[in-house]
Design a protein around this nucleic acid. Structure first.
Lengths: 196, 196
DNA sequence: AAGAATTGCGCAATAC
DNA sequence: GGTATTGCGCAATTCT
């Protein structure tokens, strides 16, 4: 009876965190195939960000390739992402360098050399980092709300089931009583007639 | 009345994804009263810690400090900075370097020189990466299940509420009928007596 | 003592 | 153009 208030408030919150249901995102439409595709176009778009930098640290984590023997100061381009997926993708696997070679042979240089030193680059990164933190906080909150919601619904469910049990029993009782009366009524009727 | 089967199966799955219950185990000091809320959330805080590599690439991302002017080949040691969650923790904030300075001044060298080139290091990393992927898949699945569970509970709830509505109505009807009969019975009785 | 599981964080690609 | 999401790898921690 009263817990309803509490429940609905939480449900409300929960609802707010799902602004439209419009996020079927979770299903992750970009499965495997997609990833490969990305790899292919890796150099085409992408803001290379290659850090035409002087020291060539390669960001350390661009797709498990980081520990590839050495391409240290060559091919240090965009090649991002592909990484991954499908478990493994070991650095040992044969790499398709055609994508690198096709455009030209440019090595250290790249189209939009935003180079990591760029103040703009840092600015963008920092902004994104903020956005990421924000987004993750939001996600955490949402998840928490969903869990709470589930628990409360479960609780409510149990109460409803109990209520149903009560009502059913009451109904049975009443029906039983009525059938008894009916029988008795019939008996009385019969008795009355016989006594006349 | 039959959809229950489906529901319970999902709930079952959901339950499986929270092996917690069954482990009254350990003290786990961080139980937020919430049975569910520990997995998806639960910050452990702490973080920071920098490592030291032989090649000094500094991993590019050690706690927001990555783009600090330059400490490239110095101070590459364990520095347990409480970084701090609680939103923010900007890299710009004043850092406490005492931890760097306290030990000694050792620069490129570090205690356990696992150096990133080490095959063992790569092995560890790769294993961890696998574990991370696994763990995240699991988390995603769990979250999804929780959502589905919530939706199904909501559905079930509605059905239960309807059922309650029906039962209540039926009960009212029966009660009404009974009261009618009672009245009629009384009236009959009165009539009978008066006729005598 | 050691490996697996979690988790916060920053990066880059992409969705919006 | 910008922010919001998402998958990923790293490193610190925690669990087993």
């Amino acid at each position: 009876m009263m817990s309803d208030t509490r429940v609905s408030s939480v449900i409300q919150e929960w609802a707010n965190s799902y602004p439209g249901q419009a996020h079927p995102h979770t299903l992750n439409p970009n499965t495997p195939t997609n990833q490969l595709a990305q790899m292919d176009m890796a150099y085409s778009q992408s803001q290379g960000l290659v850090r035409g930098g002087s020291d060539d640290r390669m960001s350390e984590q661009m797709m498990g390739l980081s520990y590839m023997p050495y391409m240290s100061s060559c091919l240090s381009n965009t090649l991002s992402a592909g990484n991954t997926n499908h478990h493994q993708s070991n650095a040992n696997t044969q790499q398709d360098f055609s994508s690198f070679l096709l455009p030209t042979l440019r090595a250290p240089v790249n189209k939009r050399s935003i180079s990591k030193d760029s103040a703009e680059y840092r600015l963008r990164r920092e902004r994104n980092n903020v956005a990421v933190r924000k987004s993750r906080d939001k996600a955490r909150r949402r998840i928490l709300l969903t869990q709470q919601r589930a628990m409360q619904l479960q609780e409510e469910n149990q109460k409803l089931q109990m209520r149903i049990g009560q009502l059913t029993q009451e109904l049975d009782t009443l029906k039983h009583i009525m059938s008894q009366r009916h029988l008795q009524g019939a008996a009385d009727g019969a008795a009355g007639e016989s006594s006349i």
